[in-house]
Design a binder for these strands. Sequence first.
DNA 1: CTGAAAGCGCTAACAG
DNA 2: CTGTTAGCGCTTTCAG
Lengths: 277, 277
Amino acid sequence: MKPPRARRGGGRPTIADVARLAGVGAITVSRALREPERVSESLRQQIQRAVDELDYVPDPNARALASARAEVFGVLVPSLTNNVFAEVVRGVYDSLSDTHFRVQLGNTHYSAVEEVRLLQLFLSQRLGARMDPRSQRRLAGYRAAMEAARLFDPDLITTTPVPSSVTLGSDLFRGALAKMPSLDGVFCNNDDLALGVLFECHRASIAVPDRIGICGFNDFDMMQIAYPSVTSVRTHRYEIGRQAVVMAREAIAGMRLKNPIVDIGFELKLRDSTNRL
Amino acid sequence: MKPPRARRGGGRPTIADVARLAGVGAITVSRALREPERVSESLRQQIQRAVDELDYVPDPNARALASARAEVFGVLVPSLTNNVFAEVVRGVYDSLSDTHFRVQLGNTHYSAVEEVRLLQLFLSQRLGARMDPRSQRRLAGYRAAMEAARLFDPDLITTTPVPSSVTLGSDLFRGALAKMPSLDGVFCNNDDLALGVLFECHRASIAVPDRIGICGFNDFDMMQIAYPSVTSVRTHRYEIGRQAVVMAREAIAGMRLKNPIVDIGFELKLRDSTNRL
DNA sequence: CTGAAAGCGCTAACAG
DNA sequence: CTGTTAGCGCTTTCAG
């Protein structure tokens, strides 16, 4: 018979410690914590006291390993510095705050296969406004509306693989105006660009909205207070994150999703930048 | 003797499967994956082939449980929608991208004690500009500089518990100007406020910088392209995230940090908004 | 309602 | 350089 090996684990109390102190089996502690209603009132209190005294906190890794369930929400976003995605993440995060789920950012390490797939996905989404599927669909919507109004002219559209920014908005607008001096309105794929256009108008003393109308997309808070205030399309980003969590949890619970695709809607915020009197 | 229980685990291949296929011990597979140099070339290849064939991916939970090391970087930020913190997170994330570390956001579930502590920390940091320690230190710096120049006047300072925003900048500026019509410069605690001031100036036809000079803090990209461009203080947010990771990893590796406090520095970006000719 | 035993998948320790 | 053994801390299964 060999001597027992030295214990490896850190000093943290384990479920066994709690069980011993409470004078019950480990599994009862486990149950008391996860399904309190399945444990008698008295034992539950006894256990709670032991938990408090030892300051016991379950180990999520052991739990995940034993139950084969992770309680981790992976969130994959193309860009962390983009406010749009930051708000989606916040929606996800808040929706999970009352659960034991952890939020993990863009983990491509989980699966080698996923890693490649996601990497490609990432790459395919950040190379620029033109390739981003969301941008493409906005463009399609713009086109459809313009065609319906018999105003569509492909030459009026500018796309670029350069990442969107306020600076880019200024630059593109300057170029567009040079090519088409009679230009009298700009619909920007997002608010950054719209702000860039606005600043460029100030710089060049171009009256907004009288000479040039401006409309952005996303409706960041700033658009409302800009001078003049800028018309934009408000998307419900936070709600997207929230809904995503709701649906994911339903799916996890084995429920079949009634509406695998939810239309979160949007709002057109009409402001001064397009309000020609 | 009882019959063996049915296996529970999901269908995913385990390290034992790989070991069997490669004709080696499980621990050798483990080593081949984590410390390839400690395994002979030939076995390593054999193992790699088995890994590929089975599409084996190590279970991070089991790994964490067995090694008592987590490979998870917890990141706690006061606000996800604040660009400053988003960039810090990005710095953290990028610095970790070539490792197996996972990034986990503001996990307060890890420890009940921590949860309370962090919650309080969070609450204490987002209630408004005045309570934020960073803001306080900026204010202290401003005060020191003004006193050195014998220009300090407490009445010129406006603080508020309202969360910072562009709108707030407009509002505060309007109020300050009403109280002190001779006001000729504004140093804002952050760029949002500065932009609000700028827009308000446009709105009220106040010349910038001739009538009012404006300086922000953080130096978001927008400040450079705003009209007029806005002077600001650039902080190295991404670098903060990166450094934090470096230091954390050194600490994990058991190294004693030479400089537990690193001065990342800053840059004053002088622009048109304070450039009175 | 409670518990004992048997793993979950992996790695540290201890031998070769 | 490789393998054997004994857990990591929790939960599932099976049995009261």
